[in-house]
Design a protein around this nucleic acid. Sequence first.
RNA 1: GGCCCGUUCGUCUAGUGGCCAAGGACGCUGCCCUCUCAAGGCAGAGAUCGCGGGUUCGAAUCCCGCACGGGCUACCA
Length: 539
Amino acid sequence: MGRSERKCTRSPTTCFEPAENLVNRTNNCGPVPRANLGSMTTNSVHPSKPVRVRLAPSPTGALHVGTLRTAIYNWVLARQTGGQFLLRIEDTDQERLVPGSIEQIQESLRWLGLEWDEGPGKDGPHGPYIQSERLQIYQAATKRLLDSSLAYECDCSPERLTMLRERQKAQGLPPGYDNRCRSRPGEELRESRERGVPIVVRLKSPGHGDVTFRDAVRGDITFDSSKIQDFVIMKSDGFPTYHLAHVVDDHEMRITHVLRGDEWIPTSPLHVLIHRALGYEVPVYVHLPLLLGKDKTKLSKRHGAASALEYRDLGYLPDAVFNFLALLGWSPGEDIEIMSREEIVRRFTLDRVNDSPAVFDSEKLEWMNGVYIRQMPLDALTDDIMPWLEKAITPPWNRVQRPIDRTRVRALIPMIQERLKRLAEAPDLLAIFFEEEVMPDRNSIIQKGMDVAATTKALTEAHALAKSTQPFEPEPLEIVFRALAEQLGIKPGQLFGSIRVAITARSVAPPLFHTMSGLGRDRVITRLDKAIRTLESAP
RNA sequence: GGCCCGUUCGUCUAGUGGCCAAGGACGCUGCCCUCUCAAGGCAGAGAUCGCGGGUUCGAAUCCCGCACGGGCUACCA
């Protein structure tokens, strides 16, 4: 786990390029060890002061569960240290915008209970929090870079760039920009601009030396600057690239810790370069391991549900999803898994964030969701289940009068609570209590070791008892029906099984006598009656 | 191709040089409970700690090499 830097190249000492100050200032070969984690004191990478962290999704569609996990860690860190959690929308790619994304992102976060302290819909001192509304800020930063010759304009066409890359590839060279415009005279660019040729701005890469940055999860990571191209920071449409925009914003918004996915590690040195060029302090990076699907490739729609709201719509509880996601890439270091938000906030440390990718195991999520459902107080569960019933349209729900009788539902829920894994299953589990009529399969009514005659007799007796038993409650019912089984000389299971199928048309249901009282005497009698007639009719 | 990151039961993980012939959880199997299903209890199968070298009295833990997997290599983020 803890690793210090693994690569150290000496920085040349003489160079007068303007970009020189972008190279590591010191001969940065001294490893900075990542936390001495034995005791939680000294070197820990975990922040002790209030952090300012942010979630910076692009409005290109649904909020991915991976992003959701990043959001959780952000939120936890902010809550734990008394800092702030910001939401910032990174919409610098105008072509990929998907209408409604921002609302969906907000809804996802709210569903999980991750309120942001600053962001869209919640103004703060560093707004606006949508990048397309901050264009002047990026343009000003770009101008500063241009004025100090740390960046330059480039009018190379996409066609030329593509050709260049293809040629380099064909020659087995690493693809990259050839710095053609780095030293072009200003007049040429002016001329291009007048002709309406699209112009971008590129940052000058130092071209030599190392760039090192600190990652809270992996220790120091060093890159060889000579591999870094003069990359684009301002696009020809006047929008900044992600690289420029997020660096400027993170600085303007006083971000202390940048939590993001693993896939950003290779471009991190670019970000460090921009920080240096602009004279900003570099934040602490926290690169989180990827979330994978069952096939061990990056989790995506292909793997089934991948967006936050889909999990809500599948009937998962926010607390369970929060708990589950928090554990994907982090562990408290003890053998405990079920933890409240408060407990996670209390125990979370960056030191214990994993560095290897995790497979999203939906079976375990399902189990955990069941644990949370079982822990819920009756009224809270009822509140959560009611909307699912109200919106259910499959039979029998399409015929049940609205609003649905909450008192009745509340009385039935104890019967399904420990059988429920997801809220979405509630309508199906409760359906037997709302069906006006059931159509039990003739053969299913007849239990193992029984025949038509014996079953008919048993149900006829049961029918009589159902009429007479007072009160129609689980305990008295159980007493008389057990006695009936004995009197009939059959096993309780045989009797109960027949009755179960007769009154529910299912072989699986909550305990029989609870089911019966939940159904009510009238319905039980009617259904028993119908089952007997079914048995008597020709096979 | 180049650069980067990773590698402990099927999966999530514990492990920070001796307490590890590797612990917990999900899943799986069996048993118990039991009117079915769940829930619960108990038991079990399941990891030569990716491979090979080294350091050390001692390595899952430290070092080196390799293999494999993934990511990046855009005027996308």
